[in-house]
Amino acid sequence: MGGKTKKLLRVAVVLAAWGLAPHAALAADGPGVVELGSLSNLFEPVTFNHTMHTDVAKSCAECHHHTLGDAPIDKTCARCHRANQPADSVACRECHPANRFAADYLAKLEANPQLYHTGKPGLKGVYHRKCLGCHRTMDGPTGCEDCHKMTEKGEAFYRTGKFAPPPAKHEAGEE
């Protein structure tokens, strides 16, 4: 019970700080270290050090586009979002759907032909593109398991580890 109250209190404090802090300071403070695990399946969650990345990034817009009120990096986006106000939520998942190709999501896109950003990539896509895209130019880690360890389910899926085909077959399988 005591632990629960403490936890609630801590959440309240964090939320209050988040709401009160001016948005410029938000970037510097950020959420510290976050665990990105909502899509975890074949790989374990990613422990993402937000503070470290804010130190490296030139601008919040590098990852958050226009949602923090900064001018977007991409010229195409800047045409409309140059003078945007900070958004209510800046989490990736708020805009990028976790199930990008689910029938109901596709139907929603189709129901409204006026809808813009219909080609917006899904959550898994943006995580990997953002991270890997930058890591490749900044010499960051680029291997799958550099960021998230493969689960046993993943090993079965990729037929690796204890699910790897017997090595003798390698030569035999060659054309």
């Binding site: 990997h128 593109r129 890997l132 680029t142 799958c144 899926f157 990729y158 037929r159 690796t160 699910f163 790897a164 085909p165 077959k169 390698h170 035999a172 399988g173 060659e174």
Partner: peptide, 28 residues
């Protein structure tokens, strides 16, 4: 331009279609 050559699609295809085990792991 977005492909990084991780071969996850190959593994997914193998599983979905119930294909025989590959000669090498899909991580190879």
């Amino acid at each position: 331009t977005k492909c990084v050559g991780c071969r996850t699609c190959e593994a997914a295809c193998n599983k979905e279609q119930g294909l025989p085990a590959p000669d090498k792991p899909f991580t190879d």
